[in-house]
Write a protein that binds this DNA or RNA. Sequence first.
DNA 1: TTCCAAAATGACCCACGGGTCAGTTATACT
DNA 2: AGTATAACTGACCCGTGGGTCATTTTGGAA
Lengths: 195, 195
Amino acid sequence: MRQPTPGRREDILQAARQVFAREGHAGTRIQEVADACGIAKGTVYLYYRSKEELYWATVCHGFEELHRRSREALLAADGTEGKLRAFILTRLRFFDEERDFFRIYFSELGRSFVRFVPDAQLQELYQAQVEVLRTILDEGISRGEMRPVNAESTAYLILDLVRSRVAQRLHQGIRTRPEDELEDLFSFLWQGVGQ
Amino acid sequence: MRQPTPGRREDILQAARQVFAREGHAGTRIQEVADACGIAKGTVYLYYRSKEELYWATVCHGFEELHRRSREALLAADGTEGKLRAFILTRLRFFDEERDFFRIYFSELGRSFVRFVPDAQLQELYQAQVEVLRTILDEGISRGEMRPVNAESTAYLILDLVRSRVAQRLHQGIRTRPEDELEDLFSFLWQGVGQ
DNA sequence: TTCCAAAATGACCCACGGGTCAGTTATACT
DNA sequence: AGTATAACTGACCCGTGGGTCATTTTGGAA
């Protein structure tokens, strides 16, 4: 009896991330993923039932990691300002490391908008993301550290602010350190552009 | 001799907008566009050379209109605050009217991010958008009405703020008037969430 | 060394949809 | 009415790529 090749599933996932990031969902051919792994196309289908399943596995894997790190950063930091800074910095750093995932994440938002794709796990992860941020905002408001804004819709704005900035950075080649972007983004978020 | 059917190109463009908005670029079949027009598939190809050309025509058409209205609003309004309010409100209203276009616009951003698509006209339109906003911000800064932020990267943030909010509104069914969203967004932009 | 079950392979199948074009239809002009 | 010309039609062509499966390879157990 032969043992299943250890780490094969992870190898495929990693190759898929590269190819999906470069070619997009529609542009990706399973053959290319297999080539990137140095295995045959059929082997991919021994580990993932379909292209769709592989795609979702890729997206969810990155999302989980992002969520995990964001949550940890929030727990470790003190005060509303500190928590927001930590949240933003963590995400800037994560996307700096995982640029392939960011490309997929970015394009997935657009995809999910035109064709409602009810992947339960991903919906949950995204909502959890918003929820954790909303909680911080509500605390900040009740402590009088923040203006009484609508916490939920502001949470969405913050997620998109970070995404927007990361996209900018990737488009024009990353020049600054995440730490510098943090100051810029945070002052925009905290003080606005007025006065 | 028969005259070319007047408005046929525009009819196809309108149908294409509906279908692309609902099905996305990859999910759209030319047959569906033809059906939505009540014409045969071959006829579509008499007016547009390929699916790709039809798609770009759809995107560019909406973009031009958006840009035209944004620019007009900026010219008509007074002062930095006034111009920014006018810019945001115009876009909120435009996307409220042209929801199909917004879906395409939103998904196109994701698409263009994974596969660099060098459509010269669209690149130009997007840059013009940023440029016009950057000018307003630079004026506001030199007049001392604003903090000395980086005008260009702030312009990107503002575009994405509006996009983010419109996406939220569409996702959870539009409940508020654009005028109310304006106040919310503008105070976020101008004062931030702090204090 | 032999055997066998599980892993891996890649030629093949076929649904799909972009694009074509020979044939049909409509209309302007004579 | 007749005709020429251009718009329109939709059956058809065919490249593409997701997914399959008979065959081969591998490696642990006897």
